[in-house]
Design a binder for these strands. Structure first.
Lengths: 190, 190
DNA sequence: ATTATCTATAGATCTATAGATAATGC
DNA sequence: ATTATCTATAGATCTATAGATAATGC
């Protein structure tokens, strides 16, 4: 059942997309290679022709998810240059994002687990975070690049923590209160 | 090898403390019941005389870790009523906290995983978070309880996200930059 | 006699690999 | 002929339980 080189490249993309979604949804340990391959429409054994190991896949999936987040932020900024920060904050701290980790921020979904992984995952996360904070810094108000970068870290942290808290609690009203409060403080006054 | 009721209660405490530490260090899935029991100086099979299931232990360990955090914040507030918030922020966003998740904030270490757990864990986390944000709200500046509570959520989120980001990156200087930036924005101006 | 703990194991995972199969691409 | 994928399995986990053991506490 060999496939063309083109089809193989497409299969690889499907594995990566499935992994980026399932890892964010269930955690790195929450989904096995066999189920990921089934998700991509392939069988277990074929996996090791595409990736060296599960950790290799974890690193590449994390890089992809973080790059997608950056692209989404850039698109929001391009669509509304004057109110980019507010739009990013409202989109990040939305009920939709809270309820769909599989399409959302990889740091909020996997940050704590990523800190416990090997060098490849750590390096991918570091590069993704660095790129995203630089993007945010460019959208921040304030005079001086250092001040804007400091504010970008504060905003990034508030967003990540806000979604983690809003997902962790089991009370819908409390969860919404968290999203609203963090959004107000992050995009509001400051 | 039966032990006294007193000894049994002490054994149960040791299992809970070991679990609260190892879960924060390695994640809920990162440590098994057998290794936890070994950590507490007991054998695998005895576990189910103390707890109904691993999930039962996860819920109780999360509750304990969150209560410990609240007690630590309260102690800092009692020691320095005038600058309570600043001390809590600096202590939370310290290199020591970043480097020792096993003794640190359960939301930063386990929040994303907790969101994927069953009702018992979710309920324990919700109760702990609620108690801690109320404690923080009491220390916030601002006129009006609602405004103080909003600021408490924003601070809690920034702290959690700040530690998650600082732990996730593999560059020591970048990690310190994150801690400093979030601390400045959270305890500084506002 | 009761019961907290221990040893041993069932049954269900998981990652990774070996060897077979069958379609691509020289 | 090469190689992407498939089937099958090795070896190492993990949670939970059954039955044996031995010390407490009536």
């Amino acid at each position: 059942m060999k496939v063309s080189k083109e089809q193989m490249a497409e299969n690889r993309e499907r594995i990566l997309d499935a992994a980026a979604a399932r890892f964010r949804e269930r955690g790195f340990d929450g989904i096995g290679v066999a189920d990921l391959m089934k998700d991509a429409g392939l069988t277990h054994g074929g996996f090791y022709g595409h990736f060296a190991s599960k950790e290799d896949l974890m690193a590449q999936a994390a890089a992809r998810a973080l790059a997608n987040a950056g692209a989404g932020w850039q698109a929001l900024a391009d669509a509304a240059p004057d109110e980019a920060l507010g739009r990013i904050v409202r989109s990040y701290l939305s009920a939709a994002h809270r309820d769909h980790p599989e399409r959302g921020c990889a740091i909020a979904a996997l940050g704590a687990e990523a800190a416990r992984q090997g060098p490849a995952v750590r390096a991918a996360v570091t590069a993704g975070v660095r790129a995203n904070v630089e993007l945010l810094a460019g959208l921040m108000p304030g005079r001086g690049a250092a001040r804007r970068r400091e504010r970008a870290w504060a905003a990034y942290a508030a967003l990540v923590g806000g979604i983690v808290l809003a997902r962790a609690v089991d009370d819908a009203a409390l969860s919404q209160e968290i999203l609203d409060a963090v959004a107000q403080a992050t995009a509001g006054a400051d």
